[in-house]
Amino acid sequence: MDAFLHQLFSGIATGGIYASVALALVMIYQATHHVNFAQGEMAMLSTYVALTLIQAGVPYWIAFVLTVGASMIVGIGIQWLVLRPLEKAPVLASVGVFIGMLLMFNSVAGWIFSYTLKPFPSPFGEGPPMLNGLFSRHELGSTGVTLLVLTAVWAFFRFTRLGLAMRAAAFNPISSRLVGVPVAKMLALGWGLAAGIGAVAGMMVAPVVFLDPNMMAGVLLYAFAGALLGGITNPLGAVVGGLLVGVIENLGGAYVVGTELKLSMALVIIVVVLVVKPSGLFGKTLASRV
């Protein structure tokens, strides 16, 4: 029973990371109907920036804040310079650009920081497991950070004027523009937020999986599965979906398919969702007027 609970909590901890990345994906998807295949690589680069800062002697939490800030600025820059001109282009063009960025970021990271695995410090220390040995310190800490970020994002969208404007811009760009919302800037800001959330996810997962240029490939895949499971049109759904996928992955890996087939579970989840309930658990069923 204890082993089972441990797997469950460990699943919630990784699920929180998938949930963050899934939320970042859904934020961009809602506003632009693009899926950012480079989201994982952006987070990976952010994590390298954090590691560089920490190795240069910057205290962890200052490095954390600086990294998130820098990632947001870069995210805004990417949207403004690369994606904005392609707004009206067909799906193939946007996927092409995302794949191009994925390849570029991955090679740049390999080029600058090498392809070797690097340990990444956890701010929560080593120490013995807590809560009757169910949670390691890092799992507990990273789950806390993830929940904090998710709550902050929710509060931002729910209670601030800027959040409302961003929701409006994503929901109905034309009317928003008419009432004076700068839609293009809101999209860019959305990209910035997504990049910031991704950076947090990267820094939280790196102590567990070690840092290397391909660190986020698996995380991104599970985040896709989480976003689809929760409903790609619903941010809350993405979070729930991400957590669920983390738990399914951990329990499935421990008791059903074994670790060799862990990644294939993402594929199975995606296909099952598409067959059984394509709109996901919380998504809207889309009906388009002809």
Partner: peptide, 11 residues
């Protein structure tokens, strides 16, 4: 280099 070149050329 191959990845970087692919990426740049693709974009």
């Amino acid at each position: 280099a191959p990845g970087a070149i692919y990426g740049v050329i693709l974009i």
